[in-house]
Design a protein around this nucleic acid. Structure first.
Length: 423
DNA sequence: TCTGGGGTCCTAGGACCC
DNA sequence: TCTGGGGTCCTAGGACCC
């Protein structure tokens, strides 16, 4: 028996989060920017309509912004994370079979609802989320995740669908596939799309009919799975418990190019510290660490990239220990005379924190480290992150590497001092 | 002057072993 | 000195996702 999936996806998620707390933004062009207010990462329908492209650097559309009075916001991750949680909580009232796929979308297993009117069910999900959270969502329903994705896209665009499209056993299915361009299929990116177009496959209906051999040759097993899913045979089951993490990374671009070794090392140390916190939150320890530096990526002449990989002598999530090792890596790859744009650390070969120690000495050291880290984390939890921090991460207000958010909305939902006021 | 961040999976090829 | 096959593990690079 084939399963039934629903994909519930928030419309223009970051923009919709801003609108929930600023109703005056309704009907207006709104965009949300990436870190350092660099480029556009979310657009309202009105912003899309005036031709603002996803990912465009904001300095390239200054004129458009002025001409159309576009409302511009920095990213407010605390707000978006909290809104996401509310949406997911609401979804779980409908069925326990929920897979949170990303910050703004979730797959539901509706196999148990066969014979019911799934469109009506989708509508009730949609209106409940709207009522409880203010978030507009679209719902796509089909036998496979890939088809549910396609249904969802059409549900978003089509007036007639009114936000919900059920493709299970639908006569409309072939036309839905025919109107879906290959680049809009889940799993088909720029590279695969170019290949498919070059062999005359332009839409999902044509891809579904393509020969397995041709697709496998260029797109491997991934391509075959896409074919299967388009044909209604599910290859990707609902994943309710997330698989263990394989890597943890912290990296940031700087607003401006930085040349001073001390500034850049401060950034690396701070990112290492944040990464160590993430490790501890996930109860993981790193066995391999990578540090990388990028100088001026948009300039051919002064471009530079280097990465150092270090195998740690033992798995650890201790901030001081990790900073010691990233320092070694940093020294090996830092070149004087370049102006840097970005740096980061990646922890890999993660093991769960409960590992057998080799010697009594190690055990003692380990216990000591654990105590210090526990105290460190709990102080920062109680008094706000960065209340205590390691000296290497910078001690004054002059941290040139800090990410800039000049147009950030208040933290309406996560900070008592910034609750919206009714006047 | 200004261009984000954090992930996963697959595959080919090399190193190494028997 | 040359001749084989087969297996595993690791890594780098490419492709994709949101």
């Amino acid at each position: 028996m084939s399963p039934t999936f629903a994909l519930v996806d928030c419309n223009n998620f970051y923009v919709s989060c801003e609108r929930v707390f600023s109703p005056r933004l309704a009907g207006k062009p709104v965009v949300v920017l990436s870190n350092n207010d660099g480029c556009v990462v979310a657009r309202s329908n009105e912003a899309k309509a005036i031709g603002i492209r996803m990912g465009i650097p904001v300095f390239k559309i200054r004129e458009t912004i002025k001409a159309h009075a576009v409302h511009v916001y920095s990213s407010n991750y605390a707000l978006y994370g909290d809104m996401s949680q509310r949406v997911m909580d609401t979804l779980s009232r409908f069925t326990p079979a929920v897979e949170q796929y990303s910050i703004d979308e979730a797959f539901l297993d509706l196999s148990g609802f066969k014979g019911h009117n799934l469109t009506a069910y989708g509508q009730s999900i949609r209106s409940q989320i709207r009522k409880w959270t203010g978030m507009p969502v679209s719902v796509g329903i089909a036998e496979t995740k890939t088809l549910a994705k396609i249904a969802n896209r059409i549900a978003k665009k089509s007036e007639k669908a009114d936000g919900v499209l059920d493709l299970t056993g639908s006569a409309y299915r072939n036309s839905a596939l025919a109107m879906t361009d290959v680049e809009d299929i889940w799993g088909v990116g720029r590279g695969y799309a170019a290949f498919l177009r070059s062999v005359g496959i332009d839409n999902a209906l044509q891809l579904r009919a393509a020969s397995d051999g041709l697709i496998q040759k260029k797109m491997g097993i991934t391509g075959l799975r896409i074919l299967q899913e388009l044909r209604g045979a599910s290859c990707y089951p609902l994943e309710q418990s997330p698989p263990p993490r394989k890597e943890i990374a912290v990296s940031r671009s700087f607003k401006y190019l930085l040349g001073d070794r001390a500034d850049i090392w401060e950034a690396v140390a701070a990112f290492t510290s944040r990464g160590a916190e993430k490790l501890r939150e996930a109860h993981l320890e790193a066995n391999i660490l990578e540090v990388f530096l990028i100088a001026d990526p948009y300039n051919r002449e002064s471009r530079y990239f280097n990465m150092e990989t270090i195998r740690l002598p033992f798995a650890t999530c201790d901030t001081a220990e990790l900073i010691k090792w990233t320092h070694i890596g940093f020294d090996n790859i830092f070149r004087e005379g370049y102006r840097y744009k970005k740096t980061g650390v990646i922890f890999r070969n993660l093991s769960s924190g409960s590992h057998v120690q080799t010697t009594l000495f190690d055990n003692e050291k380990k216990a000591h480290s654990r105590e210090i880290m526990r105290a460190f984390d709990s102080i920062n939890q109680r008094f706000g992150s960065d209340s205590v921090r390691y000296a290497a991460t910078g001690s004054n207000g002059n941290r040139k590497w800090k990410t800039v958010f000049q147009r950030r909305s208040p933290s309406y939902t996560t900070d008592w001092d910034q609750l919206p006021r009714v006047s």
